[in-house]
Structure formats: C-alpha cells, structure tokens
C-alpha cells in the first residue's frame, strides 16, 4: 500500500499543476481498491496456508478442538479453524477522503465519432464538458479560498465490502455441521 507506482507519482505531481476533475476524484478510490485487492489476495493465500492442509490434489480444513459444558457434562467437537477467524476485518473498513478542488479550466467539445439520428440535435446532447482542477491549498487547517465561490468540495466515502460468497458458504456449511463427541 505504501509503495508508490509510477502512475501514483504522476498523480501526485498533477495535484499542484492541475488535472481533470475525474482523475482527481478517481485516483484515491483506485488506490483504495488496489489496497483492498492486495489485502484480499493476501487473505486468500493466508486461508490456504493456515486454514487448510494441502493433500497434494486436494485441501482439507485444519480442525480445532472445542469443548462445551452443559449441566455439568463436558463434551467436545471439532471445528474448522476457518470458522473462528475474524476474516472480514482485512477489508478496508471505512475510507473518508475529503478535499477541496479549485477549478482551473473548463473546456467543452463534441466528440468526433458519428452518431445515428438527427445530427443537429445529437450534437447538442453529445457536448462534453471537461473540468480541469487542482487541489485547493489549506492554510491553518482551513481552505485558502471559499470553495463554494470558486471551487468544489469533494467528499468520498467507501465502506467495508462483505466476505466473498465462497468463503461465507464454506463457513456456513462447516458451522451447520458440528458433531459433538465425548472426547
């Protein structure tokens, strides 16, 4: 996560000089998505390495022994290690990115590729606006310029993703098939 790729460095340098608004907003989300993917692939490898035994052509779950006491009688059951690990904690819990941008340029253009239908009408509808923007600098924790006056305030919030369906199914199946024994 801490390793900056060339694209990240380009992004950082563009913050002060200006870039398209889409790029400014999407870059932190892309970085978060990449970090999440790294964590999830690490988690998948962890599950294979520690929660399963490799039997050559198949995997079998590593079992742990649990005990439960009821009415003074002690019984035991085996449970796959996978079912007791707090696995979903490896995903990004919550990300709150707040920044203000200063719009540096506005350009409008009509894409050159041909469209079907009324050309005059579609020309108006196809008109695209591109906003050039850079981060609005902060001074003493406050934005130098009033963002509502000449800039845009951007707040991005991303929340935790649920566990992969395969893992959830595995845990569910294992949990529903607990068989107790005397030893």
């Amino acid at each position: 996560m801490a390793v900056l790729e060339k694209s990240n460095l380009n992004y950082l340098s563009s913050l002060s000089t200006g870039n398209s608004l889409e790029a400014l907003i999407s870059a932190p989300l892309t970085a978060i998505s990449k970090a999440n993917a790294m964590m999830l692939s690490g988690q998948a490898q962890f599950i294979l390495d520690f929660c399963f035994r490799n039997n050559g052509d198949s995997y079998s779950p590593v079992l742990i022994k649990m005990e439960y006491t009821k009415d003074g009688e002690k019984s035991y059951f085996h449970l796959p290690l996978l079912t007791i690990l707090p696995l979903n904690n490896l995903a990004v819990d919550k990300v709150d990115v707040n920044f203000c941008v200063e719009v540096t340029s506005t350009t409008t253009h009509v894409p050159s590729n041909p469209v079907r239908g009324n050309p005059a009408k579609s020309k108006v509808l196809r008109k695209k606006t591109r906003l050039g923007a850079k981060l609005a600098p902060k001074e003493n924790g406050k934005y130098k310029d009033n963002p509502s006056k000449n800039g845009i305030s951007v707040a991005i919030e991303a929340k935790q993703i649920p566990l992969a369906r395969g893992i959830t199914t595995l845990i569910d199946v294992y949990s529903k098939n607990i068989i107790t024994s005397e030893e």
Partner: peptide
C-alpha cells in the same frame, strides 16, 4: 451451554492469530 477452546488447540489457534495479525 458454555463454549470454550480445548487446551489442545491453544497452540494452533494462537499461532494462526499471530500470523493473521502479521498479515
């Protein structure tokens, strides 16, 4: 019913949690 980890499994669970924290 009271549920607990059996003494035989402390090692494997503890070791796995250490690796999990490291990850």
């Amino acid at each position: 019913a009271a549920l607990a980890l059996s003494s035989e499994s402390y090692g494997v669970v503890g070791n796995t949690m250490q690796k999990f924290e490291a990850l």
